[in-house]
């Protein structure tokens, strides 16, 4: 998961040497892609194609499944709930992650190592272990509920509620927000802050006019990853939520497992992927534009 950082930073942009070898050698090199390609085809492409196929052919050929999906009020509510949950998780990550990433940049080397380590701990902790831990923490009469009761908030139900899902998911996804943001913040030229304060700007003005705009690409990248991952998250909402407030991923599972409605599951899969791609495309445009204007200002 640590690779997300690389992924956000534009990832594998190998400074490739133009290959001037003989064509046969070149094909030999492309042959190196065959094992990975086969794996991807069997384990990734074919499954997605099967889902697409089901969406349009099961139980009958046509747009029947999509008509059902768009006409079913329950599905609309679930999609809306999935979106709201993803937005909430992203906002929580933004509120907790931005100051944390800032502190990572501002800290001395030793403290920074500690803060980095703490962000990486969840990375090497299994998703199942962390979700199980949240089942314990959020359970009725569990530690968190007793804590809230001591503070005087009463017995707030946490597990099997959307609140519990948001709490668990934002903890699981926070590192995905902090790491890309940290990567962007370390590259901000801090002399710009010095320059602005020597020109008479107070700390708040410097922050809002220099630091915040320059860190926005990191905020965009982090939010994007968190938001998209939230949309398709399965294990955490399935264990911390309830069937009554299920998200789209749980619905996909139910359609296949309980109802054997492959076509409907395929349709929801298509909806989820189309939405994901659309968000990626929009944010890529926005981030591209904002970085280019910042570079223009520089």
């Amino acid at each position: 998961m640590a690779t997300v950082e690389a992924l956000v930073a534009g990832s594998i942009t190998a400074d490739t040497v133009i290959d001037q070898a003989a064509p046969s050698k070149r094909w030999g090199r492309l042959g190196l892609l065959v094992p990975a390609g086969l794996l991807l085809i069997v384990g990734f492409v074919v499954p997605l194609v099967i889902m697409l196929w089901y969406a349009f052919t099961d139980p009958s050929v046509g747009f029947g499944n999509f008509a059902w999906y768009l006409g079913d009020a329950v599905q609309q509510r679930i999609l809306l709930r999935t979106f709201t949950t993803a937005v909430n998780v992203t906002v929580v990550c933004l509120l907790l992650g931005y100051p944390y990433a800032y502190a990572m940049v501002a800290a001395g080397p030793k403290l920074r190592a500690v803060l980095t380590l703490l962000v990486l701990v969840p990375f090497w902790t299994s998703l199942m272990v962390r979700t199980f831990a949240w089942v314990i923490l959020l359970q009725d009469h569990g530690p968190l509920q007793s804590l809230l009761a001591t503070v005087g908030l009463g017995q707030i139900p946490l597990i099997r509620t959307n609140l519990g899902v948001v709490i668990g998911m934002s903890q699981v996804l926070l590192p995905f927000f902090v790491l890309p943001l940290y990567a962007v913040m370390t590259n901000i030229d801090r002399r710009l802050i010095l320059a602005s304060s020597s020109l008479g700007a107070g700390p708040l003005t410097s922050f809002f006019r220099i630091w915040l705009p320059l860190s926005l690409p990191g905020v965009g990248a982090g939010s994007l990853i968190v938001f998209i991952s939230s949309l398709g998250f399965y294990v955490t909402p399935a264990l911390l939520g309830s069937p009554g407030n299920s998200l789209i991923s749980q619905q996909i599972f139910t359609q296949v497992n309980g109802l054997l409605q492959w076509g409907r599951a395929g349709t929801m899969g298509v909806v989820l992927i189309v939405i994901t791609l659309a968000i990626l495309a929009i944010l890529a445009l926005v981030i591209g534009r904002s970085t280019s204007t910042i570079k223009g200002v520089r």
Partner: peptide
């Protein structure tokens, strides 16, 4: 494109891949 395809499994919603894999 090849780069993007190789890294696509990191971004695609796992649940959709999972159900497709189950069918396959």
């Amino acid at each position: 494109t090849v780069n993007a395809i190789l890294l696509a499994p990191m971004i695609a919603p796992v649940i959709v891949v999972a159900v497709g894999l189950y069918a396959l």
